[in-house]
Write a protein that binds this DNA or RNA. Structure first.
Length: 519
DNA sequence: AACAAGGAAGGGA
DNA sequence: TCCCTTCCTTGTT
């Protein structure tokens, strides 16, 4: 169900324009007005074309999720048939689909699970979620985003931008080979269908049997998510022109997922009277958050929670997933992943939203308006003038806007290194470059294609996408002309200051933090 | 061409 | 004064 969401793009307008619509086996696209603009969502997935049994390619990379829609309805036989019927419109519309057909996963990978060489906490969490997921919950009329769904959406992150010089494969090439560890993902519909069939076999006499992909139908017909976020179907034409053009469309989805996380967190903040910034939590607030998250995910309560976690928020944020797992084998992964989402969500906030802990109840996540600006901030716009514009948060949104302050929260980490949580002021930021790089490194789910750890213990990291890292740095500092040449010059200044050093074996784009800056 | 290294000048807090 | 930013040259990959 999650990949379905990727087909809809956040849009500020209702989808008044005619929809592409399947009308049955003929698969004719017709233009018609819809009383309910969302009613076409389920129709876009003509499940009658799916075989009832196995034998269909249901394991797909998330990246190519929209392609499953094409592939399911567009096998070769149908193509020939429809061409012979002279359905010029459809043929034209899908004339390039053959070149976009899903390439089967490499044979080295198992059918249902593509292992990730560097499975992130979020990925592992999703895998856990995927394998233990109760199919019946798919039909829930209220598909609120839980952590797993957010995580999955976070893993649809597009690869590096076209102008990038990194080695990240393009969306086209990504289909044919193992993906970058940080962006690969999959949807195993086959396992879902098998679970559904098993349930049907186990309950042969129940009247609740749902034939003909009823489960998927219910999922697709459930437009609560789309209505809630005013989403519209993704125009298939955009795929004809190449996935590169679609790349930017994924970013709103990512922001949407982040927005969900932030809003959920916002509610929890209000309930627990805690800051949205985990680094600002006291030990008691850490315990409150842990309990709340355990309850939220219906995880078993942990005995001696206070004894197990004596850290404050700053120290908690530094704990590894392994440490979480060691302390809480059943829940550690989920809690760590959830904490990563909180950290990532808070790190993305503009400075005016990052306030000291004086009034935690007033600390809010970005408003929709600010998230929109965040999208602009994240996208690779060449229009640098746009970034110079300072905006005032829109008080008409449904979150409370607080009085703007330009406080940058400085915390001291457990290692004693001063840590700044990435605030931005109107004219740039006081964040140091090395702190910014660590910030990027701390969110591999988002920035793993741009910068990643080579050896975290030694503080060695590699800039995979120098252009992107430089752009991110320039945007953070409000320096539109920033490029890697300048950024690397700044990094080299750290050699003299003892913040960074050259690696033993000099490698391009590989740097190393000096102790204790990488702690 | 992209990157590495480093000198020099200057700006902003 | 610090921390970059910007520009530059030279050398390497």
């Amino acid at each position: 169900m999650e990949y379905e969401k990727m087909l809809y793009m956040a849009n500020s307008e209702m989808p008044h324009s005619p929809h592409l619509k399947h009308t049955g086996p003929e698969q004719q696209f017709v233009s018609q007005s819809q009383p309910d603009p969302y009613s076409a969502y389920a129709d876009n997935f003509d499940l009658s074309l799916l075989p009832q049994d196995s034998g269909i390619p249901t394991t797909v990379y998330q990246y190519n999720a929209p392609q499953i829609k094409i592939e399911c309805v567009w096998d070769q036989e149908q193509q020939q048939q429809q061409q012979s019927q002279g359905q010029q419109q459809l043929t034209t519309r899908y004339s390039t689909s053959s070149s976009h057909q899903l390439i089967p996963p490499p044979p080295a990978y198992p059918h249902s699970v593509y292992p990730s060489p560097q499975s992130s906490p979020l990925q592992s969490e999703f895998l856990k979620f995927n394998t233990s997921y109760d199919c019946t919950s798919l039909s829930s009329p209220c598909p609120s985003l839980d952590a797993a769904s957010i995580k999955q959406e976070l893993h649809i992150l597009p690869p590096s931008p076209p102008e990038s010089n990194c080695e990240t494969p393009s969306p086209r090439s990504v289909k044919a080979e193992p993906l970058d560890a940080e962006i690969e993902g999959f949807v195993d519909l086959n396992s879902l269908l098998q679970q559904q069939q098993q349930q049907q076999h186990q309950l042969p006499d129940t009247t609740d049997i749902k034939p003909d992909h009823q489960l998927l139908r219910e999922c697709l017909e459930d437009t609560t998510f789309q209505k809630k976020h005013n989403l519209k179907p993704l125009a298939l034409e955009s795929f004809i022109g190449g996935l590169a053009e679609v790349r930017g469309d994924f970013e709103p989805v990512i922001s949407l997922a982040l927005e969900h996380a932030k809003r959920e967190a916002d509610a929890i903040c209000a309930e627990l009277q805690i800051s949205p910034d985990p680094n600002a939590w006291t030990s008691a607030q850490v315990h409150a958050w842990l309990r709340s998250t355990l309850a939220q995910f219906k995880l078993p309560p942990v005995n001696n929670l206070e004894l197990q976690f004596s850290e404050d928020g700053t120290a908690l944020a530094l704990l590894s997933e392994e440490e979480f797992m060691r302390r809480m084998p059943e829940s550690g992964s989920t809690l760590h992943a959830q904490l990563e989402i909180w950290k990532m969500a808070y790190a993305d906030q503009p400075t005016q939203q990052q306030q000291p802990q004086l009034e935690p109840i007033q600390q809010q996540w970005p408003t929709d308006y600010q998230l929109q600006n965040l999208d602009e901030y994240n996208e690779d716009s060449e229009d640098d003038e746009e970034m110079e514009v300072t905006t005032t948060p829109d008080v008409s949104t449904n979150t409370t806007t607080t009085t703007s302050t330009t406080t940058t929260s400085n915390n001291t980490t457990a290692s004693g290194v001063k840590r700044t949580t990435g605030g931005r002021t109107g004219g740039g930021s006081h964040i140091h470059l090395w702190q910014f790089l660590k910030e990027l490194l701390s969110t591999p789910q988002v920035n793993g294609t741009a910068i990643r750890w080579i050896d975290r213990n030694k503080g060695i990291f590699k800039i995979e996408d120098s252009v992107r890292v430089a752009k991110l740095w320039g945007r953070r500092k409000n320096r539109p002309a920033m490029n890697y040449d300048k950024l690397s010059r700044s990094i080299r200044q750290y050699y003299k200051k003892g913040i960074m050093k050259k690696t033993e074996r000099s490698q391009r784009l590989v740097y190393q933090f000096c102790h204790p800056y990488h702690q």
